[in-house]
Write a protein that binds this DNA or RNA. Structure first.
Lengths: 222, 222
DNA sequence: AAATTCTTAGGTATTTATGCGTACTTTTGT
DNA sequence: ACAAAAGTACGCATAAATACCTAAGAATTT
């Protein structure tokens, strides 16, 4: 820990979130952590506004919410990176959904934190991304590791070990068929379809039908 | 044909295209057709610039190119419509790709014409969109009809009459949240979420969660 | 002020999906 | 021929979703 005297550095930050409350929350968090840093904060309530502001001023760091009306957070990040590729962007979201995370990171965000973050952690996250190092909330890191481990990036039915039969079931689920309907379509017992469906849930690491359909999109069978 | 005397009306137009040549071409076309109209033309070479100009001045009509570096035409239209929902926008493109067309129309463009349009047709298109009527090039109309016939949905949440709240619910369903989880997330009763979900099923004309998720993909909220 | 839409919530019932087992048969690879 | 994997089938229990209602208060629009 560096405890010796150090000049106070002013950091210009742009906070992009459609909720006033969230923006205020971040400001309060940062103020509470203000030690060696002084933050010069600008706010945007939309991706469009943020892009305009970025075009006019170069910020040291930018915090972008994922879900916003109009241009999404990921699209906002993409645009910002197009104009200012050196931007240090921290993604902020309520959700640790893998698709959200990878959208943001692929768009160019350096880090991804959840909104339930502790003030000290937020400061840490900002410090890291300002120095071009990644920073993720714990939950986010876990998801990314899990994705890596399970080879989710490649996203083929084979990489999950799905059998032909299971693919047939998945296709029919994606056609909005119930297990009963699938059973009579394939001329097998409903119980069997239940089993296959259970196996699909396990193999794909998802918790319900929604996850199955999203996987079906990944596999491009929809 | 109205040939009687009629006062010359000045129409302010904003032309958004990254190519000088295209902008000049449109200007020449409009001048050649200048009869009862006089055009006061402003130019933008990018979506960002267009948005700035729209914020400063209210144009009678706006012509937006699809392909531009930086913010795309569709995103530009979306932004413009956010600030000035009454804007009359005509999309302009070299291509009659269905995805381009529906992106532009969903973003809020009133019409879509190809760049090989005849001057007289361009004037007609502008006249139509200024009066809030749709206008499409022949090729475009054909594509749209074909899409309609094949039941390819080019839907927006609005076209199904979804409310903001219903969209919030749908987003959370797409996050694999159960109704119980959504309820506590939004701090409302599970039964309320049940109701919203039921309304979503009805409005989207689908029979189960699978249909909801497919709709969510169409709406690009996944 | 009246009408309409949205959001909220609940009643009641049925259908469907999920979780965790077991077990037998068929197919596949070696 | 043998082992492993896949497919088939079922029990039992609970969780979740769907269907079809009503209805009150809030917010918007007319």
């Amino acid at each position: 820990m560096v405890t010796a005297a150090r000049s106070v550095k002013t950091i210009s930050l742009l906070i992009v979130d459609d909720h006033q409350m969230v923006r205020d929350g971040i400001k309060v968090m940062l103020e509470s952590q203000q030690g060696y840093y002084k933050f010069d904060i600008t706010e945007s309530d939309s991706g469009e506004d943020a892009i305009n502001k970025v075009l006019r001023k170069n910020f040291d760091g930018i915090i972008v919410d994922y879900q916003m009306p109009g241009i999404s957070g990921a699209e906002t990040v993409k645009s910002i990176m197009m104009y200012r590729p050196e931007s240090k962007i921290l993604a902020l979201s309520n959700y640790d959904e893998l698709s959200y995370i990878s959208n943001m990171l692929n768009a160019g965000a350096k880090g991804y934190v959840l909104k339930n973050i502790e003030p000290s952690q937020l400061l840490l996250a900002i410090q890291n991304i300002l120095e071009d190092r990644p920073y993720y909330s714990n939950e986010v890191a876990v998801k990314l590791l899990d994705a890596e481990r399970n080879n989710i990036r490649t996203g083929t039915p084979e990489s999950y070990g799905l059998t032909k039969r299971e693919m047939e079931i998945l296709k029919r689920i994606a056609l909005e068929m119930t297990n009963d309907e699938i059973a009579s379509d394939l001329k097998i017992a409903k119980r069997t379809v239940d089993s296959h469906r259970q196996n699909l849930l396990n193999k794909l690491h998802v918790k319900n039908t929604v996850g199955l359909i999203k996987a079906a999109y990944e596999f491009k069978i929809i």
